[in-house]
Amino acid sequence: MTHDNHVPELARQLAPVKRPNPVLWLYHWRYEILAVTLLPYALVNLVLWLGPVWTAVAVVVTFNWLFYWRAARRHLRGRLRAIVVQHRLRSAFAGARICTVDGRRPAILWTRPVDGDVVVSLFCPAGIGFEQIHARRDVLADACFATDVYVDRHPKYRALLTLTISTTAIRRKPGRAASPGEVVPLRAHS
């Protein structure tokens, strides 16, 4: 490698990672803000509408429904894991210096649970690509408490990537390692 190839990487390592603006910060914490504001509001209105005894009955029935119905419990656990993965990935992007030279990180467009894994759709600003994220998959996996992270390119748009955060070990063919130029296949197709 020549000296010119190291300059952008050095600049990326030395530049501070940008903090999100207030609107973006509100978007990052939208689920928590809604839980802290809407749940007490809904509970107070439920007490005013049904009364304290029937509200207690409704809350107990709802918790039992979520606890004993396996599909509801699995859906809630997957959704909560997807929310946690968003926060863990944002921190991992900053810690692993997966950012542009001016400090912008990839934007998480959406996360969704799929068969025990979490599929994350990313928009990468100019200066961040498949190679950068693929090279730091181990750091992202450690940050998300996962066994592996699979990276997939969008077939049409180079700025869009899909990460599959896998919590279960997958059998691989021995001696076959993915190189940064290859597309790593997804375990769960989006």
Rank of each mutant, 00 (worst) to 15 (best):
C124Y: 09
A58C: 11
D148A: 11
Q86V: 06
L39H: 03
A96P: 00
A56S: 06
L163R: 03
H6A: 09
T2K: 13
W54K: 02
R73M: 08
Q132M: 13
H3F: 14
P22I: 04
P155G: 11
L163C: 07
W65L: 14
P185F: 06
V118N: 00
Y157S: 05
A71V: 15
L48V: 01
T62I: 09
V17C: 13
R30L: 06
Y31A: 14
V60S: 10
S166F: 00
R97C: 03
G127F: 00
Y68R: 11
V17L: 07
L24D: 13
A188G: 05
W25F: 05
D148T: 12
R171P: 00
V36N: 10
R136N: 08
D115K: 14
V7M: 11
T111S: 08
Y68M: 10
P113T: 12
R136E: 14
P185Q: 14
D115C: 13
A143D: 11
H28M: 04
A169S: 09
L26F: 11
V17Y: 04
G103S: 07
A135Q: 14
F130D: 15
Y31K: 06
L43A: 14
F130W: 14
Y68D: 04
P155T: 06
R70H: 04
F123D: 12
G78C: 14
E182I: 10
W49T: 10
R81V: 03
N21W: 08
A96Y: 00
H3S: 15
N45T: 04
V47P: 00
G127Q: 01
R171K: 12
V149F: 08
V118G: 00
P8V: 13
V119W: 04
Y157L: 12
V139L: 14
A188P: 02
N45V: 07
R105I: 13
V101H: 04
